[in-house]
Design a protein around this nucleic acid. Structure first.
Length: 446
RNA sequence: GUGGCUGUAGCUCAGUUGGUUAGAGCGUCGGAUUGUGGUUCCGAAAGUCGGGGGUUCAAAUCCCCUCAGUCACCCCA
């Protein structure tokens, strides 16, 4: 073939290949996430990647629509790739909730697509791990959401993270008092930049783009800048929203939430009441969550969510309140990579059997089958190359144990079990069911 | 989407005011060593200099376009 006829192998901007050393920690992380979700009774669902455009469009404002991948399919239908997992959940719930019953607790781990500009940890195709409880207004579901987030990060291996919590009703209460309820979206969007651009510029922007007065901006910032221990923050909020039923309710719910989370055994350092957490999509109406890694605040929130009053109002007349959150798997993996939390192994099986004696393939296959039957992954090298070459391969891939058997071992009905990390090896009797070998392997694997 | 920076071997990077056949380290493969990996030594393979066009006797080097990465804005996981 002529060189000029070759097609350049490449991937689209923001779309990536996942080689083994990336995929192995990725799958392990997904396993952990799934385990935590299931431990609270959340059940898995899936929905199609492609939906009718009308289902997905216009749900998150202009910005979202611009990022939507949309096109006409072969039947001339206007279709779009899902942008998040929340809108598909709304459609799913409207369609199936009567059969499934409420409350519905579901998790959904799947790829979503956004045609936006890329950055580190931000891609056009990425995976989200959502969990939601639909069909209850009870604050207990909000509490459980915090507990799930807490368990998630603990199980993944983080000891330094902060779940920042707020309730939209607190700010809504203040805005009500200031008669600014109709500007809430613009106000919240500006307020969200507080940590980034500072008090002065937020105040300016609020006046110029949200159309509030200097005095109103000052009051909003006064509320948002309350900081300190959770109890202090609560105490300081109360006078600022006094007189507003909404504000009082929000404050009460926050207090209730913090007490319950503490009662469930979550250490204080993991949960911070933060009135400046305003961001999140428009549909959040109550509690909102954001989770930051203390070591990498710059990467942004790795798990966000909140409570919404009416998830599926566009698809059904039935009111579906709910609460949930979404773990950004790819952003989290980028963070873990940066923090050196990703082991550099590229084998999913811990045990390696070199193809040592070229006439003994059957024996190696039998041994491998016996070890696998004990639930331990085994790879038999496909070629009878020099032992040194094969061990080098095993070392590079990160195998833990090698089972070496050649002429001498077979004569004595033994197998050499080698710990590849410590380089220690021992000869173990080789029975038909490989019982002793399996015991020795288990000893090394711990 | 707008703007800045970057793009040379699988990886990290050299490459002079434009000037012969584009280099190094690490990695990979083979051998020293057909029964033991991480060390050492020897050897080899591997590059459309991101892609296309232009200027020039001559382009990795200068100009334009484009693709990709990255940073900021925007938005968000």
């Amino acid at each position: 073939m002529n060189k000029s006829q070759l097609i350049t192998p490449r991937t689209l901007k923001g779309f990536r290949d996942y080689p083994p050393e990336v995929m192995i920690p990725r799958e392990r992380l997904i396993d952990t996430v799934r385990r935590v979700y299931r431990s609270y009774g959340f059940s898995p669902i899936d929905t199609p990647a492609l939906e009718y455009l009308e289902i997905l469009a216009g749900k998150g404002g202009d910005e979202t629509d611009k990022q939507l991948y949309k096109f006409q399919d072969h039947g001339r239908r206007w279709v779009a790739l899902r942008f998040d997992l929340t809108v598909p959940l709304a459609r799913f719930a409207a369609q199936h909730i009567n059969r499934l019953g409420m409350p519905l607790k579901r998790y959904h781990i799947a790829a979503v697509w956004r045609g936006e500009n890329t950055q580190r940890g931000r891609y056009r195709e990425f995976m989200q791990c959502d969990f939601d409880t639909i069909g209850t207004r009870s604050n207990a579901a909000d509490v459980e959401t915090v507990l799930v987030i807490h368990d998630l990060f603990r199980e993944i291996g983080f000891s330094e993270f902060t779940i920042r919590i707020n309730n939209r009703m607190v700010l809504a209460g203040l805005l009500e008092r200031l008669e600014l309820s109709d500007r809430s979206t613009a106000v919240l969007r500006t307020l969200d930049k507080l940590a980034k651009i500072g008090h002065e510029r937020v105040a300016e922007e609020m006046v110029s783009t949200a159309g509030v007065t200097d005095q109103q901006a000052g009051q909003i910032l006064q509320l948002a800048e309350i900081s300190g221990a959770n109890d202090d923050v609560l105490r300081q909020i109360e006078p600022l929203v006094s007189g507003s039923r909404t504000g009082a309710e929000g404050t009460a719910k926050l207090k209730e939430l913090l007490d319950a989370v503490a009662a469930a055994g979550v250490q204080k350092k993991y949960v911070a009441l933060d009135v400046s957490i305003a961001r999140g999509l428009d549909y959040y109406t109550g509690t909102v969550f954001e989770t930051f890694l203390d070591a990498l605040p710059g990467i942004g929130s790795v798990c966000s969510g909140g409570r919404y009053d009416n998830l599926a109002e566009l698809y059904t007349k039935q009111e579906l309140p709910g609460v949930g959150a979404s773990l950004g798997l790819d952003r989290l993996l980028a963070a873990m990579e940066e923090l050196g939390m990703i082991e550099k192994i590229s084998t999913p099986a811990p045990v390696f059997i070199p193809y040592f004696d070229k006439d003994r393939l059957h024996d190696y296959l039998k041994l491998a089958a016996a070890v696998r039957a004990a639930g331990i992954g085994v790879e038999v090298f496909p070629e009878p190359k020099r032992l040194g070459v094969q061990l080098k391969y095993a070392d590079r891939r990160g195998f833990r144990v090698a089972l070496i058997a050649g002429e001498d071992e077979f004569r004595n009905a033994t197998c050499r079990v080698k710990d590849l990390q410590s380089a220690q090896q021992q000869d173990v009797p080789l029975e038909t069911d490989a019982e002793s070998v399996i015991a020795a392997v288990n000893g090394i694997l711990g």
